[in-house]
Design a binder for these strands. Structure first.
Lengths: 222, 222
DNA sequence: GCAAAAGTGTTCTCTGTACACCCATGT
DNA sequence: ACATGGGTGTACAGAGAACACTTTTGC
C-alpha cells in the first residue's frame, strides 16, 4: 500500500488518527444530563471529558460510537446521530467524529471502573472540561433542541409507555423552560407520532393517567 | 508514539486514510449545478465523481476543503460548510469528510487539465456517478434548501449587488419550483438580510430595477 | 374534604399563501 | 403602441401562544 510507505516520524499524507467522541444525554429528575468521564491520565488528568476513543482497525465511526455508548451505559439501539467532525479537538491533530445519543436513564447502567469512571452530570452545571469539550456539548444541545420540535427523538429518553406529563417534563428539561400543558398536548397529539395504549396508571393520590407510546421507536426522517 | 509502532500491514489502531469531498454548487441559467470531475483512473474510470482528495499532512479538513475548492474554481472566501462524515465512501475504508460550497459562477474559473477535468453539471440531470456520490449530492441539496429559508447563504451565489428578481431565480433553481413574486419580496425584505444600494440598473426594454446587497456577505448564525 | 395530578376550549396574533394589475423603459 | 420585466396590496387560512377551571383519585 503506497499510502503506508512513509516513516514513523513524517506523517503519512492523508493518514491520521481518527476518533469518536460521544455526547450521551438523558433526562433524570427533570434535568438534562450528559455522561462525563473522570480522566485518569494526562493531558487534563483529573478533569472531566466526554467519553471517546480511537477507532478500531476497520471499524466505522458509527460502529465505534455505538460501541462506546454500550461500554459506558450498557444500552444499544438508542437514538444515535452524527454531529460534526472536528480537527485537533485533542491538541494532537486527531480527526474526531462527534455523536450524540439519547438514553433512558432507567435502562442505562453506568460502567464501574477503577479509572475513567463515567458519571451523569447536569448540563446546567458543567465543571471545567478537558479540551474544547464544552463547545461540543453546547452544539449537541442545540441540535437536540432543534430536533425535538419536529421529530420523535424523545422516544429514546422514555420507557415504551409513558404519561404525557412525563413527555412534557422531558421537553421542558431539554428546552430549559416550562411549557403550557394544553398547548403541549394539542401539539404533540397533532404531530401524529403518538398513540394511546389504552393502559392507565394510577400512581399516587390523584386521577390516573392515560399511557401513550411512540408509534415508531426508531429515528424518523421528517 | 505508541499508536505508530504497528507494522505496515496490520492497520494501526485509530489511524486511517482521511479525505475531503466537496459538493460545489452554483446557479447558472436558472439551473442548480455542481462540479463533477471526469475520472481518469480506476476505480470508476471515465465516470464522474465529486472533487476530493486526501488530507495533506497536518492539514485540517476545513483547510483541505478550502484548498480543493480553490483548485477547482479559483475562488476563495465563499460559503463553505461541513456536511457529514462518511466511512468507506470509496470502498477502501477511507474516512471522508464532506463539504458543500456555494460559488458565483461569474467569478469561478474551472480548472483546465488534461485529466480529472471538472465541469458544471445540472443537478437535475446527473449522470451515473462513482461510489455513492449520488446520495452525498442529494444530502447536500437538502441541507442547502433548508438553509435557504433562514439564512443569508445565497450571498455566495450572487454578485455583490443584484436585482430581487435575480435572487428569486436563485431561490427557484435551488428549491426546484416557482415562487410568487410578491410573497418572495415581502418575505426577503422582512428578514432584514438585504439593503437597497440606491443603485438602479436598466438592462433591456423595461423599467430599471433597484439593486440590493446582502448586509453581511459571510455566514450568519441564526 | 382536601391535596395532587389529569384533562379540556376559546381567543388572538402572526405568518404563509393565493391572487392581478399598473409602471417605466427601449424599440 | 407594444413588449418586457419591475413593482405593489388585500383577503383568507392555519399555527402558535396566552390563559383557568373541572375531574378523578388516595388519604
Amino acid at each position: 500500500m503506497a499510502r503506508r510507505l512513509d516513516s514513523d516520524i513524517v506523517p503519512v499524507s492523508g493518514t491520521r488518527d481518527a476518533a469518536v467522541v460521544t455526547v450521551i444525554f438523558t433526562v433524570e429528575k427533570s434535568e438534562l444530563k450528559v455522561i462525563l468521564v473522570h480522566r485518569s491520565e494526562e493531558p487534563f488528568r483529573d478533569r472531566w471529558s466526554l467519553p471517546g476513543g480511537l477507532l478500531n482497525p476497520g471499524e466505522s465511526p458509527d460502529d465505534a460510537a455505538s460501541r462506546k455508548l454500550q461500554e459506558e451505559t450498557g444500552v444499544r439501539d438508542v437514538y444515535l446521530e452524527q454531529l460534526y467532525s472536528f480537527h485537533n479537538l485533542d491538541g494532537r491533530g486527531t480527526l474526531a467524529v462527534t455523536y450524540f445519543a439519547l438514553v433512558d436513564s432507567r435502562s442505562a447502567r453506568l460502567a464501574r471502573r477503577q479509572v475513567w469512571q463515567p458519571a451523569w452530570i447536569p448540563v446546567a452545571e458543567l465543571p471545567p472540561l478537558a479540551f474544547d469539550n464544552r463547545s461540543v456539548i453546547d452544539y449537541a444541545v442545540l441540535r437536540l433542541q432543534a430536533k425535538l420540535d419536529y421529530t420523535n427523538v424523545a422516544y429514546s429518553l422514555l420507557p415504551e409507555r409513558f404519561r404525557l406529563s412525563q413527555l412534557q417534563e422531558v421537553y421542558e428539561a431539554i428546552l430549559g423552560h416550562k411549557l403550557d400543558k394544553r398547548n403541549f398536548r394539542r401539539r404533540m397529539l397533532s404531530l401524529d407520532l403518538l398513540e394511546p395504549t389504552g393502559g392507565m396508571v394510577a400512581e399516587g393520590a390523584h386521577r390516573p393517567a392515560q399511557l401513550y407510546a411512540f408509534k415508531e421507536r426508531r429515528p424518523l426522517v421528517l
